[in-house]
Simulated scan of single mutants.
Amino acid sequence: MTIIRTVAVAAVLLTTPAHAQGLTEQAFQQISESVFRPVIEEFDIPGIAIGVTMDGQQFFFTDGLADRAASRPVDRDTLFELGSNSKLFTVALAALAEQRGFLSLQDPVSSRMPALAGSAFDAVTLADLAAHATGGLPLQVPDAVTDMDGLMTYLNAWTPQGGAGTRRAYSNVSIGLLGLIAGEQFGTTYTDALARDLLPGLGLGSTFVDVPDAEMARYAFGYSRTDDSPIRVNPGMLDAEAYGIKSSVTDMTRFLDAHLRNLTLEGEITAALARTRRSDYDTAHYAQAMIWEGYPWPVDAAALAAGNSPDMAMSPQPMTKVDARQLEGDVYLNKTGATNGFGSYVAMVPSERIGVVVLANRNYPNPVRAEATRELIVQLLARARE
């Protein structure tokens, strides 16, 4: 069973030493280069952007090209596809809906989606959707499902492989449903609720589901792992809610600053973000919160690799219901994301007041992203303490 030490947020902020005072821009660039250059070369990553927040001070490393044909370099404003890191925004929107009294995350799914009344979703809660604790929803919407009527027909006939909370099944379907429901509680669609009710409150002006025409010049091309062709994400059922967001390294670093309470935000927004970091389940490798995955800090490299392995994403895994606890203090929180042409990774350690985002226009292995980021954090903290 995963054991996470929890610490009150106020205590964390009061007792954490100020690391960033000992980290120079030159040292940051050198460490980032030494850690990620081998990764860039091994996986032929066209372009990469790394953002770090340490004690609220931001550092950025960018390298390579956003568009090879146009020789356009990656910079802090380049837009990358987040893939499944989009889910962090979906659960934040759902948690904000709870803060505003529009729903309870303990509501059964069918109570908020009446078309599913009488189905297995009478026993699956919105919080279960957010924790992949449905008992076996598939990773993707089946190819034969192409519209909402078809989706409701499929879900009404779906039978879980185990009770809710007993099997973790990583699923775009579960998070897609949560996003649909959350958007409806705001009286609109998920995409519009995100743009109107969440992103402005976070101060994120370069985060989009649909990149506006005026911003398309900032949108990187991804590059296929199979033939190296330039590609971008294709439309699909539940794409916006599950994997459709595009963002910049500056916005994503600010998003981590919001989670680390380095920003003064509206109270409902801060509370919603904190709710997404509450865990009710353990897996073999980490505590499962609302999308966030938490490991004890310092994190064991082998456990981190196992938790980010393909098996955890592709195959249902046992999970255990535990007493709810907030993932704060000495915990390493992380999430991976990818589309066919992009790979993203975010991580933070509240007790160290450090967060890292890595955006690339190549989909490269999740364990590689996780290990490089872990090593970056270790080296940055060590240099800052010298």
Results as ranks from 00 to 15, higher is better:
Tyr154Asp: 00
Tyr154Leu: 01
Leu155Asp: 01
Ala157Lys: 07
Ala157Met: 05
Trp158Ala: 00
Thr159Ile: 14
Thr159Ala: 13
Pro160Asp: 01
Pro160Tyr: 00
Gln161Ala: 14
Gly162Gln: 13
Ala164Pro: 15
Thr166Trp: 06
Thr166Asp: 11
Thr166Arg: 14
Arg167Asn: 07
Arg167Thr: 09
Arg168Tyr: 00
Arg168Gln: 01
Arg168His: 03
Arg168Leu: 04
Ala169Ser: 14
Tyr170Gln: 02
Ser171Pro: 06
Ser171Ala: 08
Val173Glu: 02
Val173Ala: 00
Val173Gly: 00
Ser174Tyr: 04
Ile175Val: 15
Ile175Phe: 02
Ile175Pro: 03
Ile175Arg: 02
Ile175Asn: 02
Gly176His: 00
Gly176Asn: 01
Gly176Met: 01
Leu177Pro: 05
Leu177Ala: 05
Leu178Thr: 02
Leu178Pro: 02
Ile181Gly: 01
Ala182Lys: 07
Ala182Gly: 09
Ala182Asp: 09
Ala182Pro: 05
Ala182Phe: 05
Glu184Gln: 15
Gln185Thr: 15
Phe186Ile: 05
Gly187Asn: 00
Thr188Phe: 10
Thr188His: 07
Thr188Asn: 10
Tyr190His: 12
Tyr190Asn: 07
Tyr190Arg: 08
Asp192Trp: 10
Ala193Asp: 07
Ala193Trp: 05
Ala193Asn: 11
Ala193Pro: 07
Leu194Asn: 11
Leu194Met: 14
Ala195Phe: 14
Asp197Gly: 09
Leu198Val: 08
Leu198Tyr: 10
Leu199Tyr: 02
Pro200Thr: 00
Pro200Cys: 03
Pro200Leu: 04
Pro200Val: 03
Pro200Ala: 03
Gly201Ile: 11
Gly201Ala: 12
Gly203Thr: 05
Ser206Asp: 15
Thr207Pro: 06
Thr207Val: 12
Thr207Glu: 11
Phe208Leu: 08
Val209Gln: 12
Asp210Leu: 14
Val211Leu: 13
Pro212Arg: 02
Asp213Ser: 04
Ala214Leu: 08
Glu215Asn: 03
Met216Gly: 04
Ala217Ser: 15
Arg218Phe: 07
Arg218Ile: 10
Ala220Lys: 06
Phe221Ser: 13
Phe221Cys: 12
Phe221Ala: 13
Phe221Thr: 08
Gly222Asn: 12
Gly222Gln: 12
Tyr223Pro: 11
Ser224Thr: 09
Ser224Gly: 07
Arg225Trp: 08
Thr226Val: 10
Asp227Arg: 10
Asp227Tyr: 13
Asp227Val: 11
Asp227Leu: 13
Asp227Thr: 12
Ser229Asn: 09
Ser229Thr: 15
Pro230Thr: 07
Ile231Ala: 14
Ile231Gln: 15
Arg232Asp: 14
Val233His: 13
Val233Asn: 13
Pro235Thr: 08
